[in-house]
């Protein structure tokens, strides 16, 4: 990408972590995107909020536990993590159940933010 053109990239995560590969794939793309110095934000809604649930232990299913990697995002200068309020509530979760600091927002706020993006990527 040419210098000086910072675009707004939003990654919308709507799938639970281990049942499908979407969550892990999204995380890997996000980490790669971080190298391009763009304005990156991550949204977690619907079952995607489960990606950030604390206390994941994957030994029993012989999958890699990639949840600690969300804590590395800060070091990659990815600091805009948004979680939709209704999705959390519908799953009996609160902000305190999540393993990273996030901004919880209403569906309207999220919709507005989505409108502002140059690129929206779905996972």
């Amino acid at each position: 990408m040419s210098e000086g053109t910072v675009k707004k990239f939003m990654f919308v995560n709507r799938k639970a972590p281990y049942g499908t590969v979407y969550a892990l794939e999204s995380l890997e793309v996000v980490l790669i995107t971080a190298a391009f110095d763009q304005d990156v934000s991550l949204v977690f809604m619907d079952d995607g909020v489960f990606q950030l649930k604390q206390g994941q232990q994957t030994k029993g299913i012989e999958n890699k536990n990639f949840s600690p990697t969300y804590r590395a995002l800060d070091g990659y200068d990815i600091e805009k993590l948004y979680v939709e309020e209704e999705s959390l509530a519908a799953r009996g979760l609160t902000e305190d159940d999540l393993l990273v600091d996030v901004t919880v927002m209403s569906r309207a706020e999220l919709g507005n933010l989505m409108e502002e993006q140059d690129v929206v990527l779905s996972f």
Partner: peptide, 15 residues
Amino acid sequence: NEFQIAPAVRVLTKA
């Protein structure tokens, strides 16, 4: 061990 990934060079350098 902490993050379950190897850091990108830029991140490694900073850290």
